[in-house]
Design a protein around this nucleic acid. Structure first.
Lengths: 120, 120
DNA sequence: CATGACGGTATCCTTTTCGACACTATGTGC
DNA sequence: GCACATAGTGTCGAAAAGGATACCGTCATG
C-alpha cells in the first residue's frame, strides 16, 4: 500500500519547499519523472532504465506518483498485460524543478568513476 | 553522528537529479537552507524559525549540511556559547534550486488551513 | 510440456529516520 | 544558591523506507 505522505506542511515559512520535496522525494521518483519527460513508457521500459530499482520499489514509486496526480497509468486490457505511464500536466509542470536539480547536480555532484564514464 | 549519504550515485542517467536530492533531502534541510538565504543566523534563531524541528534533529541537519560544504559554522569562544551559521558559496549556488522548489510548491502544495492563513 | 515476457503481489527482514526526553558546561541575573 | 540562556550530546524506541525473494495468471513460442 503506497504510503500517504505530506498530509500537512506545518513547518513554518519555507514549508512549500519541503512540500515540493516530499512529492519528488523517495529514492527513485526523481529518476522516474526524469525518464517520463522523454515520453510515455511502459512498465518494463522504465524498469530497464533504472536497473538498480527493484520491481517492488518501482511499483511503489509509480503508485505514489499516480496518487499524487503527477503521472497517469493507462491499462490496456490485453494479454500479455500492457500498462503505459505518462506525465499529467501537473507532473509536466515539475519540469523546471527537475531541470534545476539536474543542472545543479551536473555541476556539483561527483559520480562514481565507472558511472561518470557510462554517462559520458 | 551524521550519516554519510550519497557516496555513490549509480542509478543510471538522470542520477544527478537524485544526487542533488540527497543533499537537500532530510526533512528539515530545505527549510534550513531557505532561512539561511535570509542571512547568517545563530543556532537558536534557526530553531525559533522551525518550531517543529527538535534540537537534536536541527543539530543533525546542520552537521550534514556542513559536512556537505553547503553551510559554514562559526564558533565564537564565548560564554554563553555563540555559533553562527551561514551559507557557503556552494550552498548559495543552490538558490535557483530552492527557488524552483518554492515556486512549484506555492502553486501546487496545499497547506493545512491554519497555516495558509499564517503564510498569507 | 517447459520457458519466457508482462505487470504486477505478498511476505519477510534490515536499515534508516525521526521524535521524546534527559543531560552537559558555563556565566549572568535575581 | 537557583534558575535561565546558549549550543549542544546521548540514549531509547517507534515508525518508515527499502531490499530480497518468491509467487500469480495468461499467452506465445520452442
Amino acid at each position: 500500500m503506497p504510503r500517504i505522505r505530506h498530509e500537512r506542511f506545518d513547518c513554518s515559512p519555507g514549508c512549500t519547499v519541503e512540500g515540493t520535496l516530499r512529492y519528488i522525494d523517495g529514492k527513485w521518483k526523481g529518476v522516474v519523472l526524469y525518464h517520463l519527460f522523454e515520453g510515455t513508457l511502459r512498465f518494463n521500459e522504465i524498469r530497464r532504465r533504472i536497473p538498480n530499482c527493484t520491481q517492488r520499489m518501482l511499483t511503489n514509486q509509480l503508485r505514489e506518483l499516480e496518487a499524487d496526480g503527477l503521472i497517469a497509468r493507462k491499462i490496456y486490457p490485453e494479454v500479455p498485460p500492457k500498462v503505459e505511464y505518462s506525465l499529467t500536466p501537473r507532473g509536466r509542470s515539475l519540469e523546471p524543478v527537475i531541470t534545476a536539480l539536474k543542472v545543479w547536480g551536473d555541476a556539483n555532484v561527483t559520480l562514481a568513476p565507472e558511472i561518470s564514464q557510462a554517462a559520458a
